[in-house]
Every structure is written in C-alpha cells, then in structure tokens.
C-alpha cells in the first residue's frame, strides 16, 4: 500500500518538475475555482446539518435528511415544483420559434432589408433584465401603459395583467421571446447558410415550390441542431431565470411565480430567521435532479444524434 502511494507521489513530483511553468500558469485560475466553486461544494454538507452560524460548518450537528423532509412536506413544495416545470415546458413549447424566424430571415430576398431585420431582432438581447421588466411594467401599467390601453379598447375591460397569476407564465415566456428570439435564431441562420444550393436547384427542376423545398430540404437540415439543443435544454428543466422571475414577482402573482430558485433565496437568505440548512438542501436537490437529467439526456443525445456531451 505504502509503496504504491510513494510511486504516485513520485510521479506527480516528476510531472511538476517537467511542466513546472505550465503548472504555475494553470494554478492561478484553478485556485479561484477551488475557492469559489469547491469550497461551496464542501459547504453543501450543511444540507444534512442543523446549521448554527456560531458553530460553523464543521461543528454544527448532523440531522440526516430532516431538511429534505421539511422541504418535501411543506405546502409550498408541489406548488413551486409545478411552477418551475410550467415555465420550463412553456419554454420548450416555443422552442421552434427561432427556427421559424431563421427560415423567414433566410428567405428575405432584399439583402439590406434582411440585414435590418437581423439587426433589430438581435438588439433586445442586450437589454438587462431590470430594464426588460421595467419596460413590461410601463407598457402594461393599468393607467398609462399603451398595451393595457389597447387591451382595454379591444375587450372593454380594465385588467391588471401585472398582478394576474394566470397571466404570469405567458408574460414571462413571451417577454423572453421578445428579448432573445432574434439571438437564438443566429445559430439556425448560419446552419441554413450551409444548405447545398444544388439541392434547391434540383428540387426546382423537379417542380417543387418554395414551401415544399423548405419542408423537404431546409427543415431536415436544421433538425439535428434543433433536436440537440432541445435535448440539452432538458438538463436545465429545474433552472429558471432567477433574475427575471424575481423581478416580475409581486404579491398578486406569487401563486404561479414562486419557483425553486426564488424560494431558496427567500428561505435561505432573506427570511427573518434564514434557514441556511433548508436553503442548501433545496439547492442540492435542484443540482442533483439537474445532474441526473444531464446524464439521461446525454445518453439520449448520444443515441439520437450520435453527439454526446462527454
């Protein structure tokens, strides 16, 4: 046993002597990774402890799975899981939109107009979440918002969309479309640029019209990319955009807008008596589900597209 250990040690020593410059270089970023990623991973143990700040991480007493049980048994549990999944699935539902936009941009024949459309549709991607939610609030303000006035003109009813729990998932998703549809289309636009022109020419000779050619040539060409991105997005199914959800939350829409990440923040950091252990346990649950999904999804991607992540 001891002999083997020595030999590993000796090997490491030899490697370090040989590549000492490379080791020095890489240890600079790696030390940050160790401090800011691996020490928190070590701290995850408080998910299984009754954490007392005065005792610290090490000396707080172990309590097994109590924090997890508390979470699973709380009345909030099913609600926030459903809310989180609702936003994720809604996101998947609209995932073909960037493909459609890319196809549309691809068939704008006027080069200048195409460029202009691209420029305009990418631009909102650079707007911050704070500003995005600020704009939503201004547009839908019950008294002064032009969108709200438009709805009033059409339906004759004054509705407070910002305070509506049923409207929240739609508002969240479609404002996201507004912000990033153009940007998400970029990858498909460049994929479409790789379609063989001869295929189209041959199809035209055979009398295929534009719709047929899009259906039989363009769509099969972008499909693998689409499927791959969709499958990979599954691993983030419990991850929602904290920054945006949190900003859009208010006491009236909380029924549908409380998701796992915002709940962790509230329970673990801003509550009157922050429950660090419970917050960490929920975070860990979230991470583990993500990890399991990633492994499953990676298998599927490997089978379907022959393109696994590792």
């Amino acid at each position: 046993m001891k002999k083997k250990k020595d030999s590993i040690g000796a090997r490491i020593k030899k490697a370090i002597v040989k590549d000492w410059q490379l080791f020095i270089l890489i240890m600079i970023p790696i030390s940050f990774v160790i401090v800011f990623h691996y020490i928190p991973i070590y701290g995850v143990q408080i998910a299984f402890k009754s954490f007392k700040p005065s005792l610290g991480i090490m000396r707080s007493p172990w309590i097994g799975f109590d924090n997890f049980k508390n979470f699973f048994n709380s009345w909030q549990f099913s609600r926030i899981i459903v809310n989180t999944l609702r936003l994720s699935f809604y996101g998947m539902l609209i995932s073909p939109l960037p493909v459609i936009l890319a196809l549309q941009i691809n068939y704008i024949t006027n080069a200048k107009y195409r460029k202009a459309v691209q420029m305009i549709t990418y631009a909102p991607y650079f707007i911050s979440n704070v500003v995005l939610v600020g704009i939503i609030n201004l547009l839908l303000n019950v008294r002064t918002g032009p969108l709200n006035n438009l709805i009033y003109m059409i339906t004759g009813q004054q509705t407070d969309i910002l305070g509506s729990a049923t409207a929240f998932p739609h508002l969240f998703t479609w404002s996201g479309v507004w912000k990033s549809l153009g940007f998400n289309a970029i990858i498909y636009i460049s994929t479409l640029a790789g379609v063989d022109v001869e295929l189209h020419e041959a199809a035209i000779c055979d009398g295929a019209n534009l719709l047929k050619r899009i259906w039989h040539i363009d769509i099969p060409h972008v499909l693998p990319t689409y499927v791959l991105l969709l499958i990979l997005s599954m691993r983030n199914i419990l991850q929602t955009n904290f920054e945006k959800v949190f900003l859009m939350q208010n006491s009236l829409n909380i029924r549908t807008s409380e998701v796992i990440s915002t709940y962790v923040y509230k329970v673990g950091l801003v509550a009157n008596i922050p429950n660090y252990g419970l917050g960490t346990a929920i975070g860990l649950f979230n991470s583990l589900v993500g990890l399991i999904l990633l492994i499953i999804v990676n298998r599927i991607a490997d089978k379907v597209a022959g393109y696994g992540f590792f």
Partner: peptide
C-alpha cells in the same frame, strides 16, 4: 464545476 455547484447558500457563507 460546469455541472455541479454548491448553490446559493454555501456560496453566500463562503
């Protein structure tokens, strides 16, 4: 680190 992180609370404590 790309697939697993300690999460919000342990990072905060750090």
């Amino acid at each position: 680190t790309m697939f697993f992180s300690g999460g919000l609370i342990p990072s905060y404590l750090l």
